[in-house]
Amino acid sequence: MPDITLNVNRQAVSKTVEGRTLLVEFIRETLGLTGTHMGCDTSQCGACVVHLDGKPVKSCTVLAAQADGAEVKTIESLAPEGEMNPMQRAFHEHHGLQCGFCTPGMVMTAMALVAENPDPTEAQVRHGLEGNICRCTGYQNIVAAVLDGAKAMRG
């Protein structure tokens, strides 16, 4: 079984995993970081999005062993407990979430989107959320939140 060492939310972690252990399983079950969710089994829904070496990935479609040596960031890393970062606050202000299940993946994707394109258009935001499915909101408030969150993060 592979021994892996990686950095999760700025903390070094060393564990032994099975070859088949998915990164999402490792994050949720081994590390107990349950903010990353699993909503499907075909890499469609995006509830499991985390940042792997700074890029958003679907952690249900990455093996934990493949993350050996990598830096992983999950939703729990964005703000100290009890606080929200500007993107999270924008989701809160715009009612960009309902049941909250897709939300961590949505926010992690939004963070990556604005890191790459700090001033996106609405069309770019909608296209950039292609890998994240929300069943509650109809997306309108999510899109508004990402646009506003981008603005807040530009400062």
Partner: peptide, 8 residues
């Protein structure tokens, strides 16, 4: 929202 947005 706070708990949902922060993964809690």
């Amino acid at each position: 929202d706070l708990r949902f947005l922060t993964g809690r």
